[in-house]
Amino acid sequence: MDEPLHSWFKREVMIHDEALTRYLRRHWPHPEDIHDLRQETYVRLFESARTHIPDAVRPFIFVIARSLMADRIRRQRIVAIDSTGDLEALNVVVDDRPSPERDTTAHQALRRLAEALDCLPAKCREVVWMRRIDDLSQKEVAARLGLSEKTVEGHVTKGMKRLTDAILGEIESSEKQTTGREGGQRDGKQQRD
């Protein structure tokens, strides 16, 4: 029953994802909160769309994001000096379309995607290629590569994370986490040898 709302969200809202992230980054001094703020923005937007789908999505998103940030500042009563100015600036929602950093174009996104694919660990890349580009089912991929279906699902999930990270502009943070962990394991093994 939520199907129409789902496709509305994916089609009309997600094209502003990058702009929303940029807006939050610009106005919120604590980068670690951005992820939460974005999710909260979408929650409010979605809840509100259940009763009425907004006509102008983009400005509406900014208005919600702004009010969330203002709420936080009021609630926490920890008004960092450098963010007071921003709160005032928050009263004016300025879309940043004319600024030099622009929403990514289809072409740029495709290139980012291609690079993210090439940066996957070899086995994972092979699995994702067969699944996503060649359209083989996970089962077929498992048979071709002699892997268990569970392993293939793991690779696909990991590939999904990396590729969607790339599309959503979240490369930096997640990349560090994963490589850090993997590197640790490898080091441990080497010591043992």
Binding site: H6, F9, K10, R11, M14, D17, Q39, Y42, V43, L45, F46, A106, A109, L110, L113, A114, L117, R125, E126, W129, M130, R132, I133, D134, D135, L136, R144, M160, L163, T164, I167, L168
Partner: peptide, 28 residues
Amino acid sequence: VAFLRREAAWEYSARLKAFGVGRKPGVV
């Protein structure tokens, strides 16, 4: 919303298929 956000991005990644045009499936 978290699911939809990732799902939309994953669907978008289908554009990678443009790179597979003319290649033999299963040969990476």
